[in-house]
Design a protein around this nucleic acid. Structure first.
Length: 518
RNA sequence: GGCGCCGUAGCCAAGUGGCUAAGGCAGCGGAUUGCAAAUCCGCCAUCGUGGGUUCAACUCCCACCGGCGCCUCCA
């Protein structure tokens, strides 16, 4: 029974889709004016996993992530660079898509663009004006917050709390809490024709228009970063619910934000003044951390695989903030080696690749256990872990717990290899291989739900491992084997040590010596 | 000031009103190994502090201390 934390109610609620068997998810995506950084990528990873789990649970899921390609920041950046806005947007969108690809986020069904939704946006705005929730002022159109009594129900803020004036700017708004649905164009700015003259959409209206277009007036889950809760999501609700007279989204899910780890206060933040007495050195650390954390994601990918970052993101509950740090990523990498090594063992034992293992994609697909579990320690433990996995995921998508189960499964399987001595071909039989395979299927199944281990890790050394290398290694291993046979361990160790210096690791296994690059 | 979050082992991180408080990284001991590596087994926390509620709290409530986010067209 799936339970989801709903920001609206500030509590976990039993998940019940609007339409039986179907789930629509809308997640606020990026404004494509600069290369994305790690913070932009956590949401997609999380909601990709959310979709996978919902699909696994039997739902037909549609996931929408918008791309904002018209915006003040885009205009400013394109002017600064002297390139057309559309070109800038196209470049940055491509960057974003590459990042998604590296992270294995491939479950997004629609990427609506603002520029491609213009008609709907204008029509949406028109309706709000007609219904009296919005007003025109010299080519701008504003939503009148006072007309919507429920305003603030998501972020739990009263309207009166937001009356602060935006720096004394001369405003055409009736109230400072009102926000723009449509902005008139200044000369030279990209613009679209509208009933109010040439202009462009305000920031929030696109999401209302896009979500309705692709998911309907009321859909199931609206997601996004915690920072968007106010005012962005609050405004979306106001627009959509005033326009349609019905609930916009049943569940609002907000993910915690990625933070650049730093020993001192963040530079440039409100806390800075308090931390200012700190010496120069510590401030320097803060700056470095900050720049590391906000470096373009594509740069980060040169240091860490997308899969490592995905694993890292999913190892914490999505509502918690995560501190980004290189050490943490390195630790995650170490942990993942356990899995990669297991996949090697699997290949040695079965001759097959883990990545090709067929596993159920839905929890109700039956696999052929073909065994009486009772009394079989291995199968009983395996079943217990399976139950754990779903319990974790059912509890507000606890991917961290789920990853814990993955580790336990590997340990269980490694133990099985040890106990049955599966590394020795003579000990393999139909019985133990079948049991082993059952465990592997579950590992494959659950890791796929999290979107992990779907492809072999990129062999950094692929370029260097040509046929010649392979043959030379064979030769060295052969020579070393002969030395070992003759108890000439000095020579054997010399070979292994010298190879280690070059970066080649030898591991002696029951079935023979394996080599790999480190 | 307003809204909210967090404080679990050296570090990261799940979780629960009563049963052995997951898992990972690091460390230690053991099995295995010619020695290693890998793997397995074992060890390593009483849950920020002080109160309260309760037969029973780390888990609920209050206060305090400490860390943090948002309130600024930031995912």
């Amino acid at each position: 029974m799936l339970r989801v934390y709903n920001t609206l109610s500030r509590s976990k609620e039993q998940f019940q889709p609007v339409k039986e068997g179907k789930v629509g998810i809308y997640v606020c995506g990026p404004t494509v004016y600069k290369p994305s950084h790690i913070g932009h990528m956590v949401g997609p990873v999380i909601f990709d996993a959310v979709k996978r789990y919902l699909a696994y649970s039997g739902y037909d899921v549609t996931l929408v992530v918008n791309v904002t390609d018209v915006d003040d920041k885009l205009i400013a950046e394109s002017q600064r660079r002297g390139v057309p806005m559309a070109q800038l947007a196209a470049e940055m969108t491509a960057d974003y898509m590459n990042n998604l690809d590296a992270l294995g986020v491939d479950s997004i069904d629609h990427f609506p663009r603002c520029t491609e939704t213009m008609d709907e946006i204008i029509e949406f705005t028109k309706t709000l004006v007609e219904k009296g929730f919005a007003y025109e002022a010299e080519g701008d159109v504003y939503f009148e917050v006072a007309k919507y009594p429920e305003y603030g129900k998501l972020s739990h803020r009263g309207v009166e709390a937001l009356q602060g004036d935006g720096g004394g700017m001369v405003s055409r708004k009736k109230s400072s809490a009102d926000f723009a649905l449509w902005k008139s164009a200044k000369p030279g700015e990209p613009s679209w024709e509208s009933p109010w003259g040439p202009g462009r959409p305000g920031w929030h209206i696109e999401c209302s228009a896009m979500s309705r277009k692709l998911l309907g007036k009321t859909f199931d889950i609206h997601g996004g970063g915690l920072d968007l809760m106010f005012p962005h999501h609050e405004n979306e609700i106001a627009q959509s619910e005033c326009c349609h007279g019905q609930t916009m989204a049943k569940y609002w899910m907000h993910n915690g934000l990625m933070q650049a780890s730093s020993e001192v206060g963040k530079v440039g933040g409100r806390k800075t003044r308090a931390a200012e007495e700190g010496d120069l050195a510590s401030q320097e650390i803060g700056k470095i951390s900050k720049s590391k954390g906000s470096q373009p994601f594509s740069e980060m990918l040169k240091q860490f695989s997308g899969e490592t970052i995905r694993f890292f993101v999913l190892s914490t509950h999505y509502r918690r903030p995560i501190d980004f740090s290189e050490e943490r990523l390195r630790e995650v990498e170490t942990g993942m080696e356990t899995f990669h090594r297991f996949f090697e063992s699997y290949k040695r034992i079965t001759g097959k690749s883990f990545y090709d293992v067929k596993a159920p994609t839905r929890h109700d697909e039956k696999i052929d256990w073909d065994y009486e579990h009772r009394g079989d320690r291995f199968l009983e433990k395996l079943l217990a872990r399976c139950i754990d996995f779903e319990s974790y995921m059912d509890d507000d998508f606890n991917t961290g717990g789920g990853i814990g189960v993955l580790f336990e499964l590997v340990r269980l399987l490694n133990k099985f290899i040890n106990d049955e001595e599966l590394e020795k071909p003579a000990n393999r039989n139909q019985n133990n291989l079948h049991k082993f395979q059952l465990g592997v299927i579950k590992l494959r199944e659950f890791s796929a739900v999290l979107g992990l281990f779907r492809k072999p890790p990129q062999e950094a050394s692929a370029s260097g491992d040509d046929e010649l290398t392979g043959r030379l290694m064979e030769l060295l291993i052969e020579l070393r084997a002969e030395s070992r046979k003759k108890k000439d361990f000095a020579t054997a160790d010399q070979i292994r040590n010298r190879l280690a210096e070059i970066g080649v690791v030898l591991e002696d296994r029951p079935g023979g010596t394996e080599w790999s690059r480190k």
